[in-house]
Design a protein around this nucleic acid. Structure first.
Lengths: 230, 230
DNA sequence: TTATTTTGCGTAAAATTTACACAAAATGTA
DNA sequence: TACATTTTGTGTAAATTTTACGCAAAATAA
């Protein structure tokens, strides 16, 4: 059947969600792309996404797409912008509500479309379908702002991590360099890290402490109003 | 005619834009509300907004609504969130792309719907139609974040303003109090203000310098990457 | 005149940020 | 075993920024 059964008095745009999925490999920020199997832009890479269902909010839609593409459930996602250029999709008028997700790269198994999905380092992202290049730029911009108010880094690292890993992450996102000793001091000063008894073994050189994120302390701090300046 | 002439293979939600219009009266932040003339929520106050046309981006749509409601053209607007709860409109599925505008309250003459529009101080906003209470909360939250990266205050003040007015504005938005002398020092240190030769006359007490915003210096500063911490 | 309010300009103390020094822990090599 | 090398943990002094005020000038009102 090819009938058009959904009719309205006034024209309605189609609505999709797209999700920029960020991961961190220990050194560089990565994004998960999916190769398009159909036109338009067949063969081009794009962010996972799809049409919004009528009984789900766009957050639910984005989470559903994320689950379908990567097998991830309950990931940290954040809506950052809605893109609505009338020409952004050659088929029909489509506006897309864009999210970014922060995931632990090592926990992504890949879902139904896993064979089509692939991680790319930020500086190796190929030209993307639709206006997804712009969507990526906006996502990064928002992530860089967000890091000043939320400890977004902890969504990207494993449960236990070293101070060096955390520093690498901040440096990768903000594209800056910090002094190792000052970074540690500042981070510990926030009091949102648990220093664990364990250390990294085996290790090539001197072993490092492992830390975990203390979400209770963070929530307390958040009540009082604070900022995570870097 | 009451036919439904716009048909699609899959269901499409309706899409609107809504605009939270912020103004500053010298002491308090205000928002411009419009009284609804039709159901649903007839008689309740709401933010100006309306359905997106098929040939305009949502930014163009928001600017058009703003012009129709207030007569303002070329105002500073910023998209902050898209609201998509399936139940948010009792008529049909409507998602709304929400903007906030920063306007100089003294320049708002009022448009076609001027007689239905009214300014309300933030702490005197009545219960609003739809999910507009939530929309207001989110707009404020975003404005408070934004003020750390953009000199949003200058959109809300007249061309020439005193340091005290600027301080009042920051205090009203952030709901904090600054020391008068330290605020001045910090503000001047950014080097984005022109100190004018004029002063405020007549004045009840000692006259104060007038300042204007130096957008060239601001853009220079922005290139280098900076922050307007308060 | 004198008291009062508002503004401009300053300065000392406190707090934070920045730039380093140094030693301990692990490894590899002579 | 001794020693050079790398990586990490901890500390400290200097520079900078923030904070908390003091004080006098300009205008008004009594």
């Amino acid at each position: 059947m090819d009938e058009k059964n959904f009719c309205y008095k006034y024209p309605h745009p189609a609505v999709t969600t797209d999700c920029v999925i960020f991961g961190f490999d220990g050194t560089r920020m990565q994004v998960l792309l999916v190769k398009r199997g159909i036109d338009p832009f067949k063969g081009r890479w794009a962010f996972p996404g799809g049409f919004l269902k009528m009984d789900e909010s766009c957050e639910q839609g984005a989470l559903r797409e994320l689950r379908e593409e990567t097998g991830l459930t309950g990931a940290y996602i954040e809506q950052f912008h809605t893109f609505s250029d009338p020409q952004r999709d050659p088929r029909e008028r489509v506006i897309t509500i864009a999210y970014y997700a922060l995931v632990k790269i090592q926990e992504v198994k890949g879902g139904d479309d896993a064979e089509r999905a692939e991680w790319f380092a930020l500086d190796e992202v190929p030209p993307l379908a639709f206006d997804h290049d712009r969507i990526l730029r906006e996502a990064l911009k928002r992530l860089r702002e967000r890091i000043h108010f939320e400890p977004v880094g902890f969504e990207l690292l494993p449960e236990k991590f070293t101070m060096k890993q955390l520093q690498n992450l901040y440096e990768a996102i903000l594209d800056v360099h910090f002094d190792r000793r000052n970074f540690t001091k500042k981070m510990l000063h926030f009091n949102i890290l648990n220093q664990l008894d364990e250390t990294t073994r085996p290790t090539p050189k001197r072993e490092a402490f492992l830390y975990s994120f203390n979400i209770e302390s963070y929530n307390e701090l958040k009540q009082k109003g604070f900022k995570l300046e870097f």
